[in-house]
């Protein structure tokens, strides 16, 4: 195809303008994804409803676990379980992100984005922004539920803010894994298939039960499972005064998840672009 000289609007914008424009695109795609979650209950249910029910059942049914020797000192089992519920919620937020992204690939929505003059990573970044927002919603929800039903947040307001920040970061980290899964699977039903695995990985960590009370080989697996670092870091400001070490360890666990997820996402995005 031939054309006349290039008009100004077709010329590549400068770096700063491009950065501003990409930020707007990521924001707009993030808004779209949050709206999508609220308009399609199956995206919201795994993040809020399932973990809440799980929390209710666990707390109600196994509340006497706090009487076990060597169980950490807590006000109640609910205080202990809140971290597990938030971890479960953020992991399922990652699965929801995977399903939503895979749907975008299935219906061809990704082509709309890839045919536009934007960085192709924006497709993933927009979804991650939304997953972060869902993480914040999840943290606020579970802290509120906990407080309403008698949980104590020993770390006070600062502790609650640390929990919220960790949950947001964790949701984003699991969002990268979800993005990698969607880009490779390209099918929502395949992405959905990962759902049960979340529970297996969670139960093999300290999310719902103290690591030192688990039986072998679960105990050893939980020791090496980065989710234990995250669960313990989330739990610490709830059941004790705020301290730096568990928070840093949680950040380390999140970094491991995010590192793996980001590497796999970049790989998936590259192969997606090459084989589009």
């Amino acid at each position: 195809m031939t054309a006349a000289p290039v008009p100004a609007r077709l010329r590549a914008p400068g770096f700063a303008a491009r950065l501003r424009s990409e930020a707007r695109v990521v924001g707009e795609l993030g808004r779209r994804s949050v709206r999508q979650a609220f308009r399609r209950p199956q995206f919201l249910a795994p993040i809020i409803i399932f973990p809440t029910l799980f929390l209710a059942v666990n707390t109600g049914g196994a509340g006497r676990a706090v009487d076990l020797p060597q169980f950490p000192e807590v006000h109640g089992f609910l205080d202990f379980q809140l971290a597990g519920a938030m971890l479960q919620s953020t992991m399922l937020a990652g699965v929801s992100a995977a399903i939503a992204l895979a749907l975008d690939i299935e219906i061809g929505f990704i082509d709309r984005l890839f045919a536009a003059p934007i960085a192709r990573a924006s497709f993933v970044l927009g979804r991650l922004a939304a997953t972060a927002v869902m993480g914040a919603i999840s943290a606020l929800w579970f802290l509120s539920v906990g407080l309403v039903f008698g949980a104590h947040i020993e770390g006070g307001v600062a502790g609650a803010l640390v929990v919220i920040a960790l949950v947001v970061l964790n949701a984003t980290a699991f969002g990268t894994l979800g993005a990698a899964l969607a880009l490779k699977a390209k099918s929502a039903s395949t992405a959905q298939g990962i759902f049960p695995l979340v529970f297996v990985i969670l139960f093999l960590s300290s999310a719902f039960f103290p690591e030192n009370l688990l039986l072998e080989p679960a105990r050893t697996i939980a020791e090496w499972n980065p989710l234990s670092l995250i669960a313990d870091g989330l739990r610490d400001p709830i059941i004790s005064d705020l301290s730096l070490r568990p928070t840093l360890e949680a950040l380390g666990g999140i970094a491991i998840v995010a590192g793996i997820g980001t590497a796999l996402s970049v790989w998936g995005l590259r192969s997606r672009i090459q084989n589009a």
Partner: peptide, 13 residues
């Protein structure tokens, strides 16, 4: 401008 065969539209928007 591109309008592809599948009319890649998000039904929720």
């Amino acid at each position: 401008g591109v309008a592809l065969q599948e009319a890649a539209l998000d039904p929720l928007m």
